[in-house]
Amino acid sequence: MDINERITLTNQKGGIGKTTLATNLARGLAARGKRVLFVDFDVQGNAGYALNKFVLPKAVSSFDLISRKLNPDEFDEADLSLLTVIPADPRLADCGTMDIKTAVNCYEENLTLFADKFDMIILDTPPTLSNTMMIALLVSRYVLIPIEVETFSLLGLQSLLATINNTKRYAADLKILGLVLNQVCYNKPRHINELKNIRSKLGELVFKSVIANRDSIAEAQKLQCDLKDLKKRAARKAVGEFELFCDEVIEKLQVEDR
């Protein structure tokens, strides 16, 4: 597969808005004309719900990508769009006994069916260290890490970075694209202080753009719509933040590809 821009969003802690970030990134990149394939490796399947209208109508799931050889007849090219979602599958919960190398090879072979149809792939992962997360990292080129400005989230970051560094032994080209500050509450002084602390400690690894904690984001997900469809002031602010985030992702990818 020759799609260089393969991005996994991951964190070993749940509840930090990883899927929210992933789905809005996918929407934003598609809105900029990028042909995006979204692969949902999180067994909860929340990304497939939020991006429901972009899900492949035939029964091809992310579990199929890593467990068997796909037949080109299993999907119709007419169903592929600027944003196409391959949904999660309950069988992902049984990946604990799966041979990781075999799964990676299967994924790479199956993605050749889509290689000339997309510019980039975004993968959402479960919030736990698992075979599924490892597979996602091994088939990616970049990692995006959403983090909260909370103590437990930051404590878990060191463990995640260690996991990624260990993965580099088998995927030497894997790079951390950056850390994204997510679900920030600007009305909490400790969040403001922690923002400064994180930037001081981690420097350029941290994205300049920040995503605030806004009810409109959750509302858009529940309604399975784009944030731009909500005619609310808070939604407009959220749109602006995600726009800056998407621009920064593209900018970082362009730097990496030079």
Rank of each mutant, 00 (worst) to 15 (best):
E204P: 13
K117S: 09
T23Y: 01
A115Y: 07
I211V: 09
K175E: 15
P57G: 07
L129I: 13
P127L: 02
K228N: 11
I66K: 05
S216P: 00
E219T: 12
F118H: 10
Q158L: 09
L157P: 06
T151I: 13
A171Y: 06
A162K: 14
N24A: 00
Y170W: 10
Y49H: 07
R233P: 00
D124P: 09
T128Q: 12
D215G: 08
N105I: 02
V249R: 01
D76L: 10
K228V: 14
E194V: 15
D40V: 00
K228H: 09
F41N: 06
R233M: 09
I121D: 02
V104A: 02
N197K: 15
L111I: 15
P57S: 09
K237N: 09
M133Y: 12
L9K: 08
A103M: 04
I211F: 00
V184D: 10
Q221V: 07
K53D: 06
V184I: 10
T97R: 13
R214C: 01
L205W: 02
L137Q: 08
C106S: 10
V60M: 10
L65I: 01
F114G: 06
N24H: 05
L181S: 08
P127M: 01
V139M: 02
L70I: 05
P127A: 00
I7N: 01
F118C: 11
L205I: 08
A136G: 04
